[in-house]
Amino acid sequence: MATTTDTKNYKFNHSMLRVKDPKASVKFYEFLGMSLIKHLQFPEAKFDLYFLAYDSPNALSSGNSTFDREGVIELTHNYGTENDDNYTVNNGNKEPHRGFGHVCISVDNIQAACNRIEQAGYKFQKKLTDGRMKHIAFALDPDGYWVEIVSLKIGTKGADDPNEPSDPSATDPKSYRMNHTMIRVKDAQKSLEFYQDKMGMTLFRTVEQEAAGFNLYFLGYPGEKGVPENGFTADYEGLLELTWNYGTEKDENFKYHDGNSQPQGFGHICVSVDNIDAACQRFETLNVNWKKRLTDGRMKNVAFVLDPDGYWVEIVQNERFAGKANF
């Protein structure tokens, strides 16, 4: 394993969500075409981790080890919540606990995909026909987390063709991508600086919605796929979407919920690196704020840095560079 670190090797590996009932949640994400690629059990600490990703032969990270991927969803289950009638998660979209917004999948046929989800009995926060934006939908997972649905053909001819077949059989979930994770940020410039200069991400696309008073910033690691041409990002996996509502940076008392304070829900995003020791030394020289250094606590193979809003960013070893599994 190399003794230095290069951000060109970094990957936006996963996004962690706490769930009440892992059976129901795993079933939902498998219904969206994902595969359970790793299940870690920690009975002494009374929690399990479920890692799901697109893993068909056509998937971008097909066959890779768990931490040598992008677009992974990690579900965390704390034992007993499934039997607690009073337990609910914070989905990040309800006041006063807004922060995390959603995960997003991109699909081959958005009309058929949405009909398939609806016919399976899952609920929607927003259907394609709701509101002014007819090209996106938001499904609800079993815990009420929002799952945005966009077209893999968005921005191309025929992307939103209402004549596309809507029969559920006209969509192939194995062709989907886990495209991005959205978090709201207070100060766009501070967050962009953190994710670009400290985490080594590249700004792929900016969407300015001046009339609505917000901007969207899509960041990622170019990797072998490179920076998208013409801002077309729907066919990528593992992007980070920052949502900035104008004026929040001017309010000293304004703060987003990080998901780890009560009430809990979203936990963290995770970046896998080529050499975790060298990467953490680099972060030290950049004066990041730490939640957990490698040397803290019992788990000596993971670290957590804090972004400007206090969201946790886990740092793990990419197993391809280490030549061995992390767990």
Rank of each mutant, 00 (worst) to 15 (best):
S25M: 04
D68K: 13
K157M: 06
C104T: 14
L203M: 14
L203E: 09
E284T: 02
A303D: 07
N301S: 14
K126F: 01
F218C: 05
F304S: 13
H14W: 12
M133E: 15
L128M: 04
M178S: 08
R293H: 13
T243V: 15
T76P: 10
S15K: 13
T7M: 05
T81P: 04
S272F: 01
V271F: 11
V150I: 10
D251M: 08
V271W: 02
V26D: 05
F47N: 03
I73G: 03
V302H: 06
T248M: 07
Q196N: 13
S191M: 06
D85C: 14
G200V: 02
G223E: 07
G323I: 14
Y311A: 10
S169K: 15
I37E: 01
E74F: 03
L75V: 00
W290L: 11
G323T: 08
E95Q: 11
S151P: 11
K186R: 13
V227L: 01
G213H: 03
V26W: 00
E241F: 06
D130W: 00
K186S: 12
G144K: 09
V147F: 01
A211Q: 07
T4D: 08
G92D: 03
Y246E: 01
A279S: 01
N215E: 07
K94F: 10
V150Q: 13
N115S: 09
Y217C: 06
K11E: 07
A53V: 06
V271R: 08
T129C: 04
L306Q: 14
P222R: 00
T88C: 12
N253T: 13
V26F: 01
Y50P: 02
L40H: 09
L140K: 15
T66H: 03
P173N: 02
K123N: 12
G101W: 10
S35V: 12
V313C: 13
P263I: 09
E284Q: 01
G231I: 00
D143T: 07
P173W: 03
R282M: 15
S175C: 15
I73D: 04
F31G: 04
M1W: 12
A59R: 01
N289W: 10
D108K: 09
S166L: 07
F28H: 08
G267V: 05
F51P: 04
S261F: 13
M182D: 05
K225W: 05
A322P: 14
N230Q: 07
Q119S: 12
I73K: 00
G223W: 03
G231N: 00
K94P: 14
N230S: 13
P165L: 14
E118W: 00
F204N: 03
G220P: 11
E210N: 04
I105N: 08
L152K: 14
K186I: 02
L239W: 06
A112E: 07
L216H: 05
C270L: 14
V207K: 12
T81N: 06
E74M: 04
N64W: 11
E252D: 12
N13H: 14
N83W: 10
H268R: 13
N109Y: 08
L49T: 04
S56R: 02
K300M: 01
P263G: 13
